[in-house]
C-alpha cells in the first residue's frame, strides 16, 4: 500500500494499516502528534480504528522540545 506522507510517496509493507500502526512504525506512538488524513484531523481515540487506504494523503507533525 502506498500513501503520500508529508508530501512524499511512501510504500509500507503489510502491518501498517491504521494510524496507530503508522505512528508506531515511525516510533511516534509516545510523542505528542497531530495527524491529518485527507485533510481531516484524526483524534487520538480513533488512531486504532482509522484505517489507511492506498493513495491517502497523510500529514504527521510531532512536537519536540529544543531550541
Amino acid at each position: 500500500m502506498s500513501i503520500i506522507l508529508n508530501g512524499n510517496n511512501v510504500d509500507h509493507q503489510e502491518g501498517v494499516n491504521t494510524v496507530e500502526q503508522l505512528l508506531s512504525h515511525y516510533h511516534l506512538e509516545n510523542r505528542i502528534v497531530v495527524v491529518e488524513v485527507n485533510k481531516e484531523i484524526v483524534m487520538k481515540e480513533n488512531y486504532k480504528t482509522m484505517s489507511l487506504s492506498h493513495g491517502d494523503v497523510v500529514e504527521i507533525i510531532h512536537f519536540v522540545g529544543g531550541g
Binding site: 509516545n30 483524534m43 487520538k44 522540545g65
Partner: peptide, 13 residues
Amino acid sequence: CLLNHLPMDGMTC
C-alpha cells in the same frame, strides 16, 4: 488544545 497527551521526558536535543 493541541496536546493529545501530556508531555513526557526525552523530547529535547
